[in-house]
Simulated scan of single mutants.
Amino acid sequence: MSLKVTVVSDAPEAPYEQVRAQIAEQARAGVLPVGYRLPTVRGLAERLGLAPNTVAKAYRALESDGVIETRGRNGTFIAAAGEAAMRESAAAAAEYAQRALRLGLDHAAARAAVEDALRAAYGGSA
């Protein structure tokens, strides 16, 4: 198993987003198992022909999403992404529920807003 990332220069997504999405998907699919050590920012940047800041931005987003964890000088590793995603999703749902309540939405209206947002996010397939 090894990290496979390609960046398409004329893609609509920014290079950092391409890197972020590919690493996240490989972690989610188990291609990159929990504990897998990622290349350094500089190493991956050189390999992909990107600026180190571009890879650093992708790594920061992945860390914020709980997909990877940085252990200082020991490196950057794939975290338990599924668990982190579920925790973050639950926190976002709780925050939304509190806001919907403050706005005076009833249960049906709050649920409908979520369903509409999911349909939009998933291109109408939710």
Rank of each mutant, 00 (worst) to 15 (best):
R20S: 12
A81I: 01
Y122G: 10
R20E: 06
A90R: 10
A113W: 06
Y36V: 00
G66Y: 01
T6C: 10
T70W: 01
S64P: 11
S2K: 02
E88R: 14
L105H: 11
Q22H: 09
A61W: 06
Y36W: 04
I68W: 00
E83C: 15
G30D: 04
A109D: 14
I23R: 04
R119A: 08
A92D: 10
A94S: 12
R60G: 14
R102L: 06
G124A: 07
Y96N: 14
S89W: 15
R71V: 03
A80R: 06
G43W: 01
A81Q: 03
R28F: 03
Q18I: 10
D10M: 11
R99K: 07
A94M: 09
R37C: 02
R60I: 14
E17D: 13
G104N: 05
L105P: 07
R111Q: 12
Q22K: 01
G104V: 07
Y96L: 09
A79N: 09
A109S: 13
Y122W: 12
A11S: 10
A21M: 07
G66D: 01
L101W: 12
D10C: 07
L103H: 15
Q18A: 11
D10V: 14
V67N: 01
E13D: 06
E95S: 13
A100C: 08
L103Q: 08
L105R: 05
A121Y: 06
E13V: 05
R20G: 08
A21Y: 05
G49R: 08
R87F: 07
Y59D: 14
R20Y: 13
V114K: 13
E88W: 11
Y122E: 15
A79K: 04
A58V: 12
Y59P: 04
A56H: 11
A79L: 07
L38C: 01
D116T: 10
T76N: 00
P52C: 08
A126I: 09
A11Y: 06
T40C: 09
R87D: 07
Y59K: 13
T54L: 05
A120L: 00
A108K: 05
A90C: 05
L62Y: 00
A81D: 00
T76G: 02
G66C: 03
E46N: 05
E17K: 14
I23L: 09
E25Q: 15
A112C: 07
A85S: 13
G104H: 02
H107K: 15
E46H: 01
R111K: 10
G123F: 02
M86L: 09
A126L: 04
